[in-house]
Design a protein around this nucleic acid. Structure first.
Lengths: 368, 368
DNA sequence: CGCGTTTACTAAACTGTTTAATTGACCGCG
DNA sequence: CGCGGTCAATTAAACAGTTTAGTAAACGCG
């Protein structure tokens, strides 16, 4: 077993990362050309004769020259990275399959374009004790400190500390699943309409007493606008059917993966037993399904369950989940494409109709 | 509903991101001080009198000055970011709960330190058709183009195209779950020993015919060293018990989340029916459990199942999963801390004993 | 009062690259 | 032979900060 013990492998140069960086100027000097020529060798080969170019590339190779990405960025103004701003802690978000799906797709898109993703979670970024003598971190300074050409943000509400910062930012920013009156290109889905349709469906099936399973409100007051819209949409449809407000009982549960079980318990403890439950997300609904299975409650006979999102898992659960379908991928593709176009200045923000709202539709399966 | 239609909101300056950047020099000019003073106001407050500092900060505020992160990086040599190099496509990795856990923890650690994560997937990075006239992307140039102070990599094998690049890199790199003879600080776990213990356990329970459920080999030949070690560890223990090689049958399945079901089907089709199956990961084992439940196969009576990793889910499955426990968090904390120390030059690579191998231990529950 | 130290601030150099403007050589053409 | 036009390469100016070395004034002190 190979081992890098103290002093065991030494002096062959491989381990020493201290050696001074070889700069473009060094290459130029050794090759006997100007720094510009070296730059051209990489970025504008046609400006150079084939012979000199080869010569420059050779000397660069032998010297072990690595172009300095930061210096390049400073000169070109392009970081080749987009900032993915996570509204809470990354840890928290990663438990949400919707987010991991988002992240994966963004990753694939960036991969195709040769771009990098800079992940920054906004949660603990500010309000932290400022370093010795330096100012406290504000949303604005925080955003400014991220080296990216543009930003992608999820679930931003009106009141979120970052909204103002985003609007003052110099870099294009695209919002997903956010409030729909923010001054930045926003790509949402029809949460309200989807939830409304879910309610209508359940009403048509004869249900009159409902539970809505949603998140426990965050202590920091951060609101997830898309979820709010879903709850409102559902309640509105029920109200318009002439039922009293008490026909909709809201149950909260915290966390994303385990929340389903907790929700289920809470539902069982309601005095007025609901015959149907609408969940603001599929994970929650799937959790309720498994809770019901465990307790011998029959779905949909004893309890109808409707989810939101139509994750891949929703169609293979038992029973298959009735849920509100959204086309995540097309929404995301459009958002990312828009962001790239904004970055490349192929379009301007004024050209974008915002918010862009993708349709949703109810997919009726066997859980309702 | 607010709407940024073409020309609807215009000229209030909020939407225009074209306005020229306010530089440190601008602030200096307006405040009537030298550029140095402005820099000091942010980075070395004690060098300035309280009054001038306030004055500078005020003018900066009114001018809307944002320090340029890239320029700062170029001058200081600090990006305040670490590169997370994903060995395959990000999309693929995100389906692995182990990776998302890793990512979440790295995120939390970076959050604490005020650092950013640069995500870069190596999968498609090179071998792509080179841009017009520019050189093809090589692992080395690719790595060099990432603006980060150091790198964290998962599952790197000897033959991986990046290994050489990492060793030539100027920036500290820490490896996790990788080959254990690479010339970089490596933090592994005792895969071999864990799998060996799992086999011994099953042998002691009287099993004589085994299946090992592992990944389908990747077409690109990339090998996941930790998984190789597990398979070998298991096979070795069985061989040392005097059983013939045929006592261990290897079943492959692709993908991470759905692989469990596929593995289960494959196991059922084996001519020599195994009485116990060892899975190289918990997800796979959990999938087999649910496949068995669906088909009415009793675990552990008809089939004993042992996983690897001891994810949170493993203890709450039905039946609770016997699995090889690893302390992911401590491994990760140590790796990250080491990386930060290397970046800050508080330690040198020669001081690090590598590979660092965390112990694993078998946790016997009810699936075996 | 003169000497050394601190305080508050500045000028200039430095980080490594791109890019606009420029030069000089060479070529064909009228 | 002189003139415009490429071609190949160079010079110099950005890009937006940090940092080192230095200076003038103020201060403390015997």
């Amino acid at each position: 077993m190979f081992r890098i013990g103290a002093g065991v492998v030494e002096g062959n140069g491989v381990l020493s990362r201290k050696r001074k960086r070889v700069t473009l100027r060094d290459v130029a000097r050794h090759a006997g050309v100007s720094p510009t020529a070296v730059s051209f060798a990489y970025n504008a080969p046609h400006q150079l004769s084939h012979a000199t170019r080869e010569h420059i590339l050779d000397t660069a190779e032998t010297l072990g020259y690595q172009p300095h990405p930061v210096a390049r960025t400073l000169a070109t103004g392009r970081t080749n990275a987009i900032g993915l701003l996570v509204p809470t802690s990354l840890n928290w978000m990663l438990h949400d399959p919707l987010f991991t799906h988002f992240l994966g797709e963004v990753g694939a898109a960036c991969d195709r374009e040769g771009k990098r993703i800079v992940l920054a979670s906004m949660h603990e970024a500010w309000g932290r004790d400022p370093g010795p003598g330096s100012e406290a971190v504000t949303p604005f300074t925080w955003l400014a400190s991220i080296a990216a050409d543009g930003f992608l943000m999820f679930s931003i509400d009106r009141g979120h500390p970052l909204t103002e910062a985003v609007q003052r930012s110099l870099r294009p920013t695209v919002l997903l699943d956010s409030a729909d009156d923010l001054q930045a290109p926003t790509f949402n889905i029809d949460d309200h309409g989807g939830a409304y349709a879910a309610a209508q469906h359940l009403l048509a099936r004869g249900h009159r007493q409902f539970a809505v399973a949603t998140m426990t409100p965050r202590r920091d007051g951060v609101v997830i606008p898309s979820i709010e819209r879903r709850v409102r949409g559902f309640a509105e449809a029920v109200a318009e059917a002439g039922l009293p407000p008490s026909a909709v009982q809201i149950v909260h549960a915290r966390g994303v993966p385990a929340a389903g079980h907790e929700s289920f318990q809470n539902i069982r403890q309601l005095r007025r037993r609901p015959t149907a439950v609408f969940c603001v997300s599929d994970v929650r609904a799937l959790g309720i399904l498994s809770g019901a299975r465990r307790e011998g409650i029959s779905v949909p006979d004893d309890l109808a369950v409707v989810g939101f999102g139509d994750l891949p898992d929703a169609s293979v659960s038992s029973p298959p989940l009735t849920t509100v379908h959204r086309d995540i991928d097309s929404q995301l593709q459009l958002a990312i494409r828009t962001l790239f176009q904004l970055i490349n200045e192929q379009i301007s923000e004024a050209d974008i109709e915002s918010p862009h709202i993708d349709a949703t539709r109810l997919v009726v399966r066997e859980s309702s």
